[in-house]
Computed example of a mutant assay.
Amino acid sequence: MAASYISVPRDLTKVKSKVMFNLTKRQLICFSVAALFGVPSFFLIKQIASVSTAAMGMMVIMMPFFFLAMYEKNGQHLEVLLGHLIEATFVRPKQRPYKTDNNFSALVRYEKAQTEIDEIIMYSQAMRDDRHKKRRR
């Protein structure tokens, strides 16, 4: 009698629960939506073109839904990857300037701020002294 083995995946997080026909709920929904759009489009295209053209049109209409159902990379589905691509391409700025903050530049900024503060204090003291001199006269 030969021993039969069943392969068990090491990472159980990648195992997805199957609902029907060995397909996940996501795949069933996407395939149903693909059929909902693809089959009527086949009959509409067949009225104005040949059957092979209608079949090609139906496949073109259904393929995005199949990609949404099946494609997954690094645990992310197609719509998530497309969202990242759109954000990186159109939403975020193209050039991100590299800015350093070393100790010397921080000391220079501190010294500049300190001299501005000292000037403001000296100006306010001079104004106060002028007011006192005018009151004494």
Rank of each mutant, 00 (worst) to 15 (best):
M127V: 14
I29D: 01
L85V: 04
G38I: 04
F31M: 08
A3W: 11
V51G: 00
V15Y: 06
Y71Q: 12
Y71E: 08
E119T: 11
A2V: 07
P64T: 00
A55K: 02
A55L: 13
F21P: 01
F65W: 01
S41L: 15
S32A: 11
S124H: 03
T24N: 02
Q95W: 13
R10M: 13
H77V: 07
S4T: 13
D11R: 09
V33Q: 00
A35C: 06
G75R: 05
R92Q: 14
I29F: 05
V60K: 07
E111G: 09
L28G: 02
R92L: 13
N102T: 01
V33Y: 02
F42K: 01
I6R: 07
K73N: 11
M58P: 00
V91N: 06
S50Q: 06
H77C: 05
R135Y: 09
E79Y: 08
L68E: 07
K16T: 10
R136H: 08
L28I: 06
R26K: 15
G57M: 03
N103P: 02
Q114W: 08
P40C: 04
P40V: 03
F42I: 04
K25H: 09
Q27C: 02
L36V: 04
M122H: 15
H77F: 12
F104Q: 05
R131E: 14
L12V: 13
T24C: 04
Q125E: 14
S105L: 07
D118N: 15
V15K: 02
A88D: 15
E111R: 08
A34Q: 03
R92Y: 08
E116K: 15
H77L: 08
T53V: 07
I48P: 00
Q76L: 14
A34N: 01
F21T: 05
M1E: 12
Q27K: 09
M56D: 03
K112H: 05
P9Y: 04
N102H: 01
V33N: 00
V91S: 10
R136C: 06
A3T: 14
Y98A: 13
A2P: 11
K25T: 11
Y5W: 10
A49S: 08
V91K: 13
A106Y: 04
M62C: 10
F43E: 08
Q27E: 13
M56S: 03
F66D: 00
A3F: 10
F37H: 06
D129R: 14
F104L: 13
E87R: 10
L12Q: 13
F31N: 03
K18V: 10
E111A: 14
M127F: 07
F66V: 06
K46Y: 04
K133T: 12
I48G: 00
L12N: 12
K14T: 11
M122L: 15
I61S: 00
L107G: 11
G38D: 00
D11Q: 06
A126T: 09
K46D: 09
G75M: 01
I61K: 06
F31D: 03
V51A: 11
